[in-house]
Design a protein around this nucleic acid. Sequence first.
RNA 1: GCGGAAGUAGCUCAUUUGGCAGAGCGAUAGCCUUCCAAGCUAUAGGUGGCGGGUUCGAGCCCCGUCUUCCGCUCCA
Length: 513
Amino acid sequence: MANNETLLKKIIAHSKEYGYIFPSSEIYDSLAAVYDYGQYGVELKNNIRNYWWESMVHYHENIVGIDSAIFMHPTVWKASGHTDAFNDIFIDNKDSKKRYRVDLLIEEHIAKIEDKILKEISKVSQKYGDTFDEKMFRTTNKRIIEYQNTINEINKKFNEALDKKDFAEIKKIIEYLGIVCPVSGSKNWTEPRQFNLMFSTQIGSTSNEDNGLIYLRPETAQGIFVNFLNVQKSGRMKIPFGIAQTGKAFRNEIVARQFIFRMREFEQMEMQFFVKPGTELEWFSYWKEQRLKWHLSLGIPSNMFRYHDHERLAHYANAACDIEFNFPMGFKELEGIHSRTDFDLKSHEEYSGKKLRYFDNELNESYIPYVIETSIGLDRMFLAILSYSYKEEKLDDGSERVVLNIPSLLAPIKVAILPLVKKDGMPEKAKNIFNSIKTDFLCQYDEKDAIGRRYRRQDAIGTPYCITIDTQTLEDDTVTIRERDSMKQDRITINEISNTVNKRIKESYKLAC
RNA sequence: GCGGAAGUAGCUCAUUUGGCAGAGCGAUAGCCUUCCAAGCUAUAGGUGGCGGGUUCGAGCCCCGUCUUCCGCUCCA
């Protein structure tokens, strides 16, 4: 564990030193849990996004992409459940330092009372056997009626306080009920507090009641759902079909840490797949499998990944699974695959009053499609690639090197062009080569310092191929091509550079569809 | 948000009763070098996180604040 902690630290330091990731607004002491991508970071990030986009949108004729706005009508978030679900009220126990969701504390308390009712019932039902009438008993037994009244009373008071956002009243209820912290056993509570997980801002001219209060989207999925009909009709899409989107999302995390794993501003790559009701679980397992294949296609070993099936499901799902990656902090969620049922479209139908249905010619009827969601964090994928790639190697000659074994398809710089020495016309020759292949790959020219040191520099930023120009190049137009991982060199002609690099990159991954 | 540790050059770290702020690596320019870091010369780079206080004098002591790291509740 200690090793893994230092590994993450090393990756963070390496990212900063070599232009991958910088803390946001660093000269002003940074902004917590916000990061900027540097000159190599942006290339890697773009390459990951492109690979995802091509695998999802270009290689599937029944999946199309969109790019919806970050600003959305505020009602979208009422319909999605975010306005309520992401506005939980928390309370801290001062002794155990534990934080609890107030509604869950109350729920637990109510569950205890319900337990008492059930005990009463089972006691009596054993006595009377088959002739026992539970309904009758519930409505007539004095004790049960009392319990039930208590429950109703708590619910009523709590909901009233919630509606009014009356935090003082909420605290009173908790104190009145004598709820104790399960850990410390004390009733030493802080004031209840609200953590709004959505960022809000003002927009001038919306017509809603809150004076133009709108939110930055906490997920990109809703942009897909509200455009479901637009895309389906304009694209003449037939079920099953998918809509994909990548883009920024924003969440005001209570605790945002672990580098770019959990940021306030992050980027998602989501695909919502619309299917016939009743077929959703088949499609769920299909996409579960497909998405893992996509990860493995990059050549990262399969033991770095694992599935994690959800036991407790979110309000909108009837099946859910994470693909977890073995980050330096351990196995953590990288991608989620959810069977979202018809929750979102149905809810948008209710709130918007617009029919969001699909007419199925085979069945000769219309229905609200069910949805399978694949949702991956781009920044998390970035961190996965980086933490898999970062290696400190001890070489045979006793020296050490730090290398990023980034899958070459995703590497920021693909080719470095290096004159062996800075004289005898080698720099000029090298610049000619640079100019002739710069339209094929992102290249970098470097003539400073000894050749070995330049190789190490390229290793450190993860450049898979180095082309070196030497005396022989001047005689017969051949160069050496050096592989980052093996450090082996081959001699090829200048004309072969593009094809060779292309071929080797293609061989390094299995096309994912 | 709460508790614990830390913050000195781009990076890693020195600088002790409180007395002129330093080194290595890196960077830049040049020299030397014909294939895997650590050859030579020169140069740049610091209001010691920031703000206040104590003191003749603060990087060091005190207070506040910000940021980062480590532990606790949600999520992609």
